[in-house]
Design a protein around this nucleic acid. Structure first.
Lengths: 114, 114
DNA sequence: GAGGATCGGTACGCGGGCGGAACGATTCTC
DNA sequence: GAGAATCGTTCCGCCCGCGTACCGATCCTC
């Protein structure tokens, strides 16, 4: 089901949602960090450091640091892969789900105002 | 005209657009900087430093630094207000308009995929 | 025109993200 | 089992953004 959004509407939607989140002064995630959370929660597992790095085309250390931040916020969790103990699997948390739920409400509310 | 977007669709829209922009490795603006550009281009002028600071609920120096960055990228321009020479008016540029046009295409394309 | 209010910018110290290179741990290859 | 390959992490120097406090310039009040 494709959403029909005109370019002008797209910008206005983004602006309203962005202003709301900036004003709220909340979690203050960078674009990369937010992209990581969204990917972990909305695309099928498993999620590894290397997989996320190649998906987002950024360096491995950048993913490691993003995960450091996200685990500190309790928005994600690391777990060793028992099948291949070199891998680290990124998993969801309740707090992360709540954060994304709130965030989606902000975007949906912004869409209603466009 | 209200856009009808379900919370789940909102998250997926945001994720797709965000992943595209992160992958492109383009301008790499922070949330605040992007909020400033969008506000300058999509809400009626005049735009002053103080006005932007109170709208986004952040400090004046943060706006000054954001404008430093945006003017360096030639996405915005500073101009003294001749009526009240204490004020600085933030103005648009062609390059900024092109940037936002590209960005809106990314969001609109992401919406089509949702 | 003197004193205070308001504008945007600057100085400062701090915290944090960046990529490249090296690291230990684990697995694969032969 | 030895050596190469792959995984995530850590180290390094660098750059950038943050808020508080202060600055000069400009305007307003009386």
């Amino acid at each position: 089901m494709a959403l029909a959004v005109k370019p002008q509407e797209a910008l206005d939607l983004w602006r309203r949602a962005l202003v709301t989140t900036v004003r709220s002064g909340g979690a203050d995630l960078s674009a990369r960090q937010l992209a990581v959370v969204l990917t972990v929660y909305m695309t099928p597992p498993p999620h590894t450091v290397r997989g996320l790095a190649s998906l987002l085309k950024i360096s491995k250390p950048a993913i490691t640091r993003a995960l450091d931040r996200l685990t500190a916020l309790d928005f994600a969790r690391r777990r060793r892969d028992e099948q291949d103990r070199r891998n680290v699997l990124v998993q969801r948390t309740v707090k992360g789900a709540v954060f994304l739920s709130d965030f989606s409400s902000v975007v949906a509310a912004a869409a209603r105002e466009v």
